[in-house]
Every structure is written in C-alpha cells, then in structure tokens.
Computed example of a mutant assay.
Amino acid sequence: MSSNPSTPDYELADRLELTTAEQVRAISDPLRTTLLGLLHERAATVTELAGAVKRPKSTVAHHVGVLARAGLLRVVRTRRVRAIEERYYGRAARMFYVGLGRQADGVALPPDFNDFEVAAKESNAAYELGQLRGFIRHARLSEERAAEFWQRIDEVIHEFDRLPRSGERVYGFAVGLYPMLDDYPVLPDPQERQES
C-alpha cells in the first residue's frame, strides 16, 4: 500500500450525482466498482489496474472505457514510455450517488445494486475470524431528524474517503439509514397510557 498522505494524488470533485442510465449501468458492475475503489488511492494505468485485480489487460481496458464514457473516470495525467503515451486514470468524484428515487433517466437501479449485500459478502470472512465490527440500531425519528443525522454520517463517510492509504490491510466501511417498512414494535405514547 502507498503511504502517500494526499488521497488520491489528483484533483477530483467531491460528489457526482448519477443522472443517466449509462452511469447507473456503469457503476453496477462489481469489477468496475472495484476499479473505482482502487482509484481512491491514486491515479493508475490500465496495466496497474489489471495487475491489481488479476484480470487480463484487455478486460480491464474495456471496463475502464465503460467508466470513462459514462463520465465516472477521466485521464488525469499522461506519461511517455518509449513511443507510447501511458494514460493515468482517476475518478471524476470521491462519491457517486443516485438520488432517493433510485433511478436515472427513468431506469431503476439494478436489484443487485445494494451496498449492504456487497458488504455482507465482503465481511463474512472477517465475521468468521471474529474481526467484524458492526452494530444495528433502530430509532423512531421524523424525516427531518433522519436527514440531519444522515448529514452527520455523510461527513464521516467523506472523512473515511480522505484517509491516507497506508497500512497492510484494506478495511470496508458500510453505513446506511433506511425506513423500516414492516411492522416494528413501538411503545405507546406515555400520555395515552395515563389516559387509559
């Protein structure tokens, strides 16, 4: 891992809302999300990315092209190596998101576009080794309070994204806020109890 304190080593926007079906499709592939994750650390060439994910360079070049055409990746610098110009790719933004409607250009996110499902798969080995840190809590809140709370969580997410890439191990960080859509037990209002 790099110990570069500037993460990543190129300029990028803070966040980018996915507004087209092409962008939604581009980010819904597991290999492409892995490539985007690697580019949080620093800009990289197709050759470097292919080596990191242990896939053929042609496969990675295809996926980089899909991300670049969707506006999620861009060439951030070039370097001349012999007679070839080597391109270094970087993310267009630290964070990509689809608004609460979960669709772009009228196209809904694929059903497998669930960060918690991905996190559950990734974290299973850590769970088996007793190295998973996590919790789940429930609270009755107004939509306004939930939005305020998420804003604070969003700041922590951005802090995590900006951490210098160092150390020997990659850590996953999953967080979410969701309304309970089934019947979750709720205590009666104390006022109602006193009146009865």
Results as ranks from 00 to 15, higher is better:
residue 55 R to Q: 04
residue 145 R to C: 12
residue 97 Y to G: 12
residue 73 L to I: 05
residue 158 H to W: 09
residue 100 L to H: 12
residue 93 A to T: 04
residue 190 P to T: 02
residue 58 S to W: 00
residue 73 L to S: 04
residue 179 P to M: 10
residue 66 V to F: 02
residue 2 S to V: 12
residue 161 D to L: 12
residue 79 R to G: 11
residue 150 W to H: 01
residue 29 D to L: 10
residue 137 R to G: 15
residue 155 E to N: 09
residue 28 S to C: 13
residue 95 M to I: 05
residue 24 V to H: 00
residue 58 S to I: 03
residue 32 R to M: 01
residue 95 M to L: 12
residue 113 F to C: 08
residue 11 E to C: 08
residue 182 D to C: 06
residue 72 L to A: 03
residue 102 R to S: 11
residue 78 T to Y: 04
residue 107 V to R: 12
residue 82 R to G: 12
residue 84 I to N: 15
residue 29 D to S: 08
residue 77 R to K: 07
residue 81 V to G: 10
residue 141 L to T: 08
residue 6 S to Y: 14
residue 32 R to G: 02
residue 26 A to D: 09
residue 59 T to E: 12
residue 194 Q to R: 13
residue 196 S to Y: 05
residue 24 V to L: 11
residue 116 F to N: 08
residue 54 K to D: 02
residue 8 P to S: 03
residue 84 I to W: 11
residue 68 A to M: 08
residue 190 P to Y: 00
residue 149 F to S: 13
residue 86 E to I: 00
residue 119 A to Q: 04
residue 158 H to T: 06
residue 107 V to G: 03
residue 10 Y to T: 11
residue 50 A to L: 00
residue 188 P to E: 02
residue 138 H to A: 08
residue 1 M to F: 09
residue 40 H to C: 13
residue 92 A to V: 00
residue 143 E to T: 14
residue 116 F to Q: 13
residue 190 P to L: 01
residue 177 L to R: 14
residue 167 G to R: 01
residue 25 R to P: 03
residue 184 Y to D: 07
residue 114 N to G: 09
residue 161 D to M: 07
residue 99 G to C: 08
residue 140 R to H: 12
residue 138 H to T: 14
residue 61 A to P: 00
residue 5 P to R: 06
residue 29 D to Q: 15
residue 102 R to C: 08
residue 113 F to N: 01
residue 145 R to V: 15
residue 77 R to Q: 05
residue 38 L to A: 07
residue 81 V to M: 14
residue 102 R to A: 08
residue 122 E to C: 06
residue 33 T to L: 09
residue 196 S to V: 01
residue 183 D to I: 11
residue 102 R to I: 02
residue 158 H to Y: 07
residue 187 L to E: 14
residue 104 A to W: 01
residue 166 S to D: 09
residue 27 I to A: 03
residue 166 S to V: 10
residue 153 I to M: 05
residue 66 V to Q: 05
residue 86 E to K: 10
residue 9 D to W: 01
residue 195 E to Y: 10
residue 164 P to K: 06
residue 136 I to S: 15
residue 5 P to L: 08
residue 54 K to A: 09
residue 134 G to T: 03
residue 108 A to N: 12
residue 27 I to T: 10
residue 10 Y to V: 06
residue 141 L to C: 03
residue 87 R to D: 00
residue 28 S to W: 01
residue 74 R to A: 12
residue 87 R to H: 14
residue 162 R to T: 06
residue 28 S to I: 12
residue 123 S to V: 00
residue 141 L to V: 09
residue 24 V to A: 13
residue 133 R to K: 04
residue 107 V to D: 09
